[in-house]
Nucleic acid binder design. Structure first.
Lengths: 139, 139
DNA sequence: ACGTTCCATGATAATTATTCTCATTTTTAT
DNA sequence: ATAAAAATGAGAATAATTATCATGGAACGT
């Protein structure tokens, strides 16, 4: 928490509320989710503040912006390399903390400076699977 | 090409132009890219038609909608399982046709019906790497 | 505690990608 | 050729995100 001052971020109550919500959060919330949650304590908070804060955190590498959900950006406070699994039906995202030992051939490395990788698994979560859900094929 | 009638899609000139542009295309174009290209031959084509056509193709599994670019959806006529690599700077996307043999533990399979996976590699393409580009950390 | 500087906030406008509506036109099967 | 069904284009509508900017509040030095 104190880390924020050190990296040039002013610690405002709004930010603290956002940080607190994100800390240890594994639900991969969208900006809307965060807004709705923080609003309970800060009814006057604006979307701009949420987006500003998320962008500030992202730029400093303190959170990850996930592109796994085609509808909206999702945010992840877990910055250790890991993968994700998204339910095609309810769009829930869960962590996959496994090392798949992805190695690309030298040939490819020569043509592209690879900085990282991310696996997205898609399918149906337990709940949605039960209901016999037909997803429309979207990822 | 004839396949389209068979699957209940009427073959219009606009669609043919879109299909022709997509056929064998490995640039992973956005809707805008497709629109701009097809517009050369059909100046009166509308965005609605592009989106309609893409959605019709996607629903029938003839193209893939990629979520790899946070700015916009990208489309891929190559529906064989493969992976992608995105340049953080110029947002170009290239295919990675390699089998990484991703296997998830049974434990996970029990809790989630996994239908597929997709690896996104991110980094810098040759051109952007040369220019010594500092991407801002976004994926 | 105080004042100053600079950054953050919130209200709201603007932008961008995508979806929707609907009257008209085109395709396709007969 | 004709009718039924579906596609088109124009533009409105929606939704997520970004930008603008006047005001307010944190940080830091005194």
């Amino acid at each position: 928490m104190e880390r924020f001052r050190e990296i040039g971020l002013k610690l405002t109550p709004q930010r603290m509320a956002i940080l607190e919500y994100l800390d240890g959060n594994t639900t991969h919330p969208s900006a809307e989710d965060i807004y709705q949650h923080v609003r309970k304590r800060f009814p006057m908070i604006s979307f701009a503040t949420v987006y500003n804060t998320l962008e500030a955190l992202r730029k400093r590498g303190l959170i990850l912006e996930l592109t796994i959900d085609p509808e909206r950006k999702r945010y992840d406070p877990n910055i250790h390399p890991h993968h994700h699994l998204i339910c095609l039906k309810c769009k829930s995202v869960v962590d996959v903390e496994l090392d798949f030992n992805i190695t690309v051939p030298e040939e490819l490395k020569g043509r592209f400076e690879i900085l990282g990788n991310h696996i997205e698994f898609y399918g149906l979560c337990e709940k949605c699977s039960e209901k016999g859900g037909e997803s429309d094929g979207s990822v």
